[in-house]
């Protein structure tokens, strides 16, 4: 069974009284261990698709199964729990909380897991993941004391800390220079190949897309593989 299975997903928005049809029947699957790039021009529906994959938004029509759950009719709280457990977000502009140290940022998802994990255990787990992304020595730095590449590594650690079934990255190298981009992509490859982390990368950078095992393109609300 695929880890992610989207079938004929539609989404439209109301804009100034007009229905704006963004996704016009998107179908695709992602298997566990895949590293998939979704590319598309701006306005193609890329961001909308990413929000729906990430359970931040709901589709209007079609079915979407994530890790065996049909999420179409889930309640908001259930979606939050699914996000917490199954999805690790990596954003273009890192989206770290400036007021927290690196390790505190990384352990945030565990804080919302509502299980009996103690804070000490959460910190331990967070430190282990920081080690994995090579940032253990920066654990007690605040984000503004770190470079963009370092911040993105912290963000990746945060995405991984809850052992999600899917790592969802939105333009993960968009805010980084070439060297740092390569560094982050290298980390992604290592995580995918050594740790078996399933990845979906949303990007418009063909170089990044070329490094993924599968490439999907979204154009004017339709999905095609290439």
């Amino acid at each position: 069974m695929p880890l992610l299975n989207m079938n004929d997903v539609h989404k439209s928005y109301m804009m100034a009284g007009n229905a704006l049809h963004i996704l016009k029947g998107v179908s695709f699957t992602v298997q566990a261990g895949d590293m998939v790039a979704i590319t598309g021009a701006s306005g193609s529906g890329k961001s909308t698709l990413m929000n729906i994959i990430g359970l931040l938004d709901r589709h209007d029509q079609g079915s979407y199964q994530l890790a065996g759950n049909e999420v179409s009719h889930h309640h908001d709280d259930a979606l939050a729990a699914l996000r917490n457990k199954n999805i690790g977000f990596v954003f273009q502009s890192f989206h770290l909380l400036q007021r927290l140290t690196a390790v505190d940022n990384v352990m945030q998802p565990l804080m919302y897991r509502h299980d009996a994990m103690t804070v000490a255990t959460m910190r331990q787990t967070a430190m282990a993941v920081l080690e994995k992304v090579g940032m253990a020595d920066r654990a007690h730095h605040h984000p503004n004391q770190l470079s963009g590449g370092q911040q993105q590594r912290i963000a990746i650690a945060r995405a991984l800390v809850g052992s999600p079934t899917l790592l969802l990255a939105d333009e993960p190298t968009g805010a980084l220079d070439r060297e740092m981009s390569e560094d982050v992509m290298h980390l992604f490859h290592r995580l995918n190949q050594q740790e078996g982390v399933t990845m979906v990368l949303i990007t418009h950078d063909p170089e990044v897309a070329a490094q993924c095992g599968r490439r999907l393109t979204i154009d004017d609300g339709y999905m095609s593989s290439c």
Binding site: G54, L56, D76, D77, A80, A81, R83, N84, K85, F89, H95, L96, L97, Q108, P109, Y112, R113, R158, G162
Partner: peptide, 13 residues
């Protein structure tokens, strides 16, 4: 933005 981040990583309303 902080609220958005927290919601994304699984904070409920």
């Amino acid at each position: 933005q902080e609220i958005g981040i927290l919601r994304a990583i699984g904070a409920r309303q």
